[in-house]
Simulated assay, not measured.
Amino acid sequence: MSGAYRAGGAFDALDVLRAPGDGPVAFGGELGAQDLLAAYRRGLFPLPTADLYAGAYNEAVYGEAVEAGEVALLAGGEDPYALAWWSPDPRPVMAPGGVRLGTRLARWLRNRSTWWTTADRAFGRVLAACAEGRQPVWLTDELREALTQLHALGAAHSVEVWEGEELVGGVFGIAVGRVISLDSMFHHRPDAARVAVADLGARFGAAGGRLLDAQWDGPHVRSLGAEPMARSRYLAELATGGVAAGPPTGEPLPASRLG
């Protein structure tokens, strides 16, 4: 690797605005904490592979697009096809207060729930639970290490849902300015992940946040209240100046307040 390499510099030349919206923007590069944060600032998120087969699949499917210059190939890494960078267009987003719980869940939270929530209390446990049993494996050890470093730097956040002292749901994501990009969620009780997202929205909104990014569109995130936003507008939201949102407050709060 060239001695001129600097964290995040690999993304400077990417024209994300005009990149494919239904495929990877680039392959390769590094997966350090600062590289990861630089990518999120440009509207990108990583999708690393866990084995040689998956990397070979990426090369077979996208190799011609890379050769044609339609998908960038970044310096760094032994196998560039083992790490893809995505920026879907459109992007599913929600207002912090716009997470949809549904009538049944809201009523249950108000009347019967004993769940309580925290933020940034058990980031590592949320990360591990999100990785457990997922196929294909994308929360690799390398990515988890980078995310843990970002959490220590105050850029990655989690929300935890508790039943007594048992962790029953959670979500984590990366904050850039007034946008937080939700990477993954999990539940060990029905609807606990949905409650985690609603709680993160409430805490992030109270700290000055204005947008929750769900990354991948689909029926599940639409059921949470996500709506498609053109990538051009999403990138403009990331680039908006002004005071960044503060970290979500971490004190224990009753989940019933969300109902």
Rank of each mutant, 00 (worst) to 15 (best):
R42V: 01
L36W: 12
G23M: 06
G23D: 13
E30P: 01
L44F: 03
G43A: 03
R41P: 09
E30V: 11
A33W: 07
Q34A: 15
E30W: 15
Q34F: 13
A26M: 09
L44S: 08
G29L: 07
D22I: 03
L44M: 11
P46F: 00
G23Q: 07
Y40R: 10
D22H: 11
G29D: 00
A39F: 04
P48L: 01
G23F: 03
G23I: 13
P20E: 13
L47H: 00
F27S: 04
L31T: 00
P20A: 08
L36S: 12
G43S: 01
A26T: 08
P20R: 11
P24S: 11
D35L: 14
A33V: 02
L44C: 02
P46N: 08
Q34H: 14
E30I: 02
D22Y: 07
G21Y: 10
A26G: 04
G43H: 01
R42W: 01
L37Y: 15
G43V: 00
A38M: 04
A38C: 07
P48F: 00
P20I: 08
L37C: 06
E30Y: 15
G28H: 11
L44V: 01
P46I: 04
G28F: 10
L47Q: 00
R41Y: 02
E30L: 15
A39V: 10
G29V: 03
L47E: 00
P46H: 02
A26Y: 03
D22R: 15
Y40K: 07
L44P: 00
G28N: 14
R41I: 09
E30F: 15
Q34C: 13
G32A: 11
G23S: 15
G28V: 11
A33F: 10
P46K: 00
A26I: 08
A26R: 05
P46A: 01
G28W: 13
G28C: 13
A19D: 09
L47V: 05
A19I: 09
F27C: 09
G32M: 00
A19F: 02
V25K: 05
V25H: 08
L47I: 02
V25G: 04
P20G: 12
G28Q: 14
A39H: 03
A39Q: 02
G29R: 07
L44G: 10
F45S: 04
G21S: 03
G32Q: 05
Y40D: 15
P24E: 08
P20F: 07
A39D: 09
L36R: 07
G23A: 15
D35F: 14
V25C: 09
R42F: 01
A26H: 11
P24H: 07
G28D: 12
A33D: 14
G28T: 09
